[in-house]
């Protein structure tokens, strides 16, 4: 049985609890064991390093060391958590280990580099296999047009992420196809949702968000799906502001990656927490 040290990230504990539920359910259905890392902390959310780079390195070294103690690879479900953890790992593997280990040892921990950091999407493709996933699909999402929205931090910077070509990725589309749905390639699929500048540059952020949703609609999509709960928050929670910023009229539901998979595996919308979305997902599910 596949087993991972699960790093849920703060958002899954708070605003995006539905993603936690969906992740757990999907893992269960696929027979993947997720053991939550005991005592994990916030990754710093791509902001901590601006205030204190060393603290960002320290907390993520600890997070990875905790997983190493469990003897398991780290599994994340958030692009930014993945980036922060992998960036720390990159630094640790290139000289920072000596700086950090004495501090970790005081807490009975050590970073040795044995636990890779992977994302749920990557895990499904590389470790689990889409063919195997296809066999588990109980309710193919036939006829559903899905705009796969990657978000930045699962692709960029490539020397840290490197799972697939940053300019022409296809992991999401492959997955969407495996679930029986039809992937929609839309203009803004690799653009930034603006989440990380929502406080400092709100207008631009809303324009970015609105542009992505509009582009997905113009591509003929029924919904967007994203492997990042922060992007999902942006596309869903700020959709009204986004629409205003780009003078758009129509709504488009934004799903977590694990929710889309969950639907195909036979869970109901309610079980996957879709009632918690700001934009109604009902239209999407009519007849399913």
């Amino acid at each position: 049985m596949m087993k991972y040290a699960f790093f849920p990230g703060c958002v899954l504990e708070g605003a995006s609890q539905e993603a936690y539920t969906a992740t757990t359910k999907v893992a269960q259905a696929l027979g993947i064991e997720l053991v939550e890392i005991p005592g994990w902390t916030c990754c710093g959310g791509s902001h901590l390093q601006d205030y204190d780079k060393t603290a960002a390195l320290a907390v993520n070294a600890r997070n990875i060391a905790l997983a190493e103690k469990m003897g398991l690879p780290v599994l994340t479900v958030c692009n930014t958590c993945t980036l922060m953890l992998r960036e720390a790992k990159h630094e640790l593997d290139n000289g920072a280990k000596e700086l950090v280990n004495p501090a970790l040892q005081q807490a009975g921990l050590e970073y040795t580099g044995t636990s890779p950091v992977t994302h749920f999407l990557w895990m499904l493709i590389k470790d689990y296999g889409l063919d195997k996933l296809k066999k588990k699909v109980k309710r193919p999402l036939k006829g559903m047009k899905v705009a796969g929205y990657y978000g930045c931090h699962i692709l960029r910077p490539p020397h840290i992420m490197g799972f697939e070509d940053h300019a022409n990725p296809h992991s999401l589309e492959d997955l969407i196809r495996a679930l029986g749905a039809e992937p929609v390639l839309f203009d803004a699929r690799l653009k930034c949702c603006g989440f990380h500048s929502v406080f400092t540059s709100k207008e631009d952020t809303m324009k970015a968000t609105g542009t992505i949703n509009l582009s997905a609609l113009e591509g003929g999509a029924d919904c967007t799906v994203t492997p990042c709960p922060l992007c999902q928050m942006q596309l869903d929670m700020y959709q009204p502001e986004g629409k205003r910023a780009v003078n758009a009229n129509d709504d488009i539901p934004a799903l977590h990656l694990t929710q889309l998979i969950g639907l195909a595996l036979g869970y109901t919308a309610e079980e996957l927490g879709m009632k918690r979305h700001i934009v109604n997902t009902g239209i999407l599910l009519a007849g399913r």
Binding site: S46, C152, H153, L155, R156, P157, P158, H166, K191, C192, G194, H196, S197, T200, S201, D204, T205, A208
Partner: peptide, 12 residues
């Protein structure tokens, strides 16, 4: 400087 969106395009 505080308005960068962290999209990492420049690095890429």
């Amino acid at each position: 400087a505080w308005k960068c969106q962290h999209c990492q395009e420049c690095v890429t």
